[in-house]
Design a protein around this nucleic acid. Structure first.
Lengths: 222, 222
DNA sequence: TAATAAATTTAGGCTAGTCTAAATAAAAAC
DNA sequence: GTTTTTATTTAGACTAGCCTAAATTTATTA
């Protein structure tokens, strides 16, 4: 069943997986071409090939969705990506803002056995260094009920569990301000002027963050 | 200086490195096409591209050799290959006959930093699981004076340090007979009939091996 | 040394994956 | 309900890597 895919094909599957998680159902050619940074013509081309291979449901001009097999393949790619990121951070001491590009390469290595042994070696982690859940060998992953920090009611105690924005500048901002995974906090005040948030962290330190930061940090209620 | 190479280009460089180590100097198109299992026409094609990029010295119909830069690139690929093999065996508990194909994939991952951290994580190993020397970050590797077991004088004490044949069947043969790296032995007798060798191992156990085995095992005199 | 064999290069063609420009269909706006 | 805008597909072209078949050069051998 698991056909051998090129890296390009795998990258398209991941992109489709990613945008369909956001929106829900059929994905437009346009959304894919934006995500992939490639022309609409190339997307049409690849869509044809992938639906030919049974990985996508596709009707001309009606958008695409992942088939069962396409979904499983994409999930496995996500599993590999997140396990490699965990490896790089936990074992090789990379910082969480350096590992994405590397994992983009490593996720294309073909070997179920390798992935499973890596998983075991890392102690079957359920979340990667950015707080994203890692699918297990069957493709199942933990679902956490989390909300954006910006949605958190004033006074409510919560803990930082993930990021929405995975870019280096944002991760480095968090590093510098100490707003890392596992940190407990409360919003002490929401400033109407620019929707910035006044936070009280663990040890009582306070921090003022912009709306943008609030929208890109996930927290879990305590 | 380090241009970005495709996997195909890297594979050709490795092949040329490999066959020129055997013979010495300029490598024929033919030798490369045999090593790469590809047509002579494809080889000519790729030779042109690689010499264009300054990685090969090439004169029509006179064979190719690696330039300084080509040699450094090939050595770095070998470094990556052997470090990944070491990782797979030492950390992920793969056996030495399972790791080659995986390392063939992993050696194409692009990141000096990753390679160096992996090296450090593994404790700067000087030899890989097959006994082959691992180039350091500067491309230097240990040279060992070793001989094929078949060359060993009768009675001379020696220790197994490497294999010439890296194929799974041979490695599994060694696994099954206990002729592993680090084992001490002596040739007690050379049988003229078929050039097979009677060995005495560490703990006094004896073993009869064929000429073929003798030619594919490297030992170091004690 | 002339003839034959072997190695190498050239010529031409194929696929995957990309692109731009043009054609067509669908959606939005008037 | 036309018209205009936007999205999508088609057409045609390009590069990297591969191939086979033919041409050419070099090596071998009679």
């Amino acid at each position: 069943m698991p056909e051998l895919l090129s890296q390009a094909e795998e990258n398209y599957l991941k992109a489709i997986y990613k945008v369909s998680r956001r929106d829900g159902t059929p994905v437009s050619n346009n959304a894919i071409s934006v995500e992939m940074q490639t022309s609409a013509a190339s997307v049409t081309d690849m869509i044809n090939r992938l639906s030919q291979k049974g990985l996508l449901n596709y009707q001309k001009r009606r958008g695409v969705s992942l088939t069962e097999e396409g979904y499983a393949t994409a999930t496995h790619l996500v599993r590999k990506h997140r396990l490699w990121e965990t490896f790089l951070v936990d074992k090789l001491q990379f910082s969480w803002d350096e590992v994405h590009e590397l994992a983009e390469q490593l996720e294309h290595i073909q070997s179920r056995e390798l992935v499973n042994r890596l998983d075991e070696y890392l102690g079957f982690p359920r979340y990667d260094p950015h707080g994203d859940p890692i699918p297990d060998a069957e493709g199942l992953m933990a679902e956490r009920q989390q909300v954006a920090l910006s949605q958190l009611p004033v006074g409510q105690l919560a803990v930082v569990v993930g990021v929405k924005d995975h870019t280096t500048p944002f991760l480095q901002y968090l590093e510098r301000t100490g707003l890392l995974l596992g940190v407990q906090l409360r919003v002490s005040e929401r400033l109407d002027y620019d929707n910035s948030l006044q936070l009280v962290l663990d040890q009582g330190t306070t921090l003022l963050v912009s709306q943008k930061v609030g929208q890109n940090l996930f927290v879990q209620l305590k």
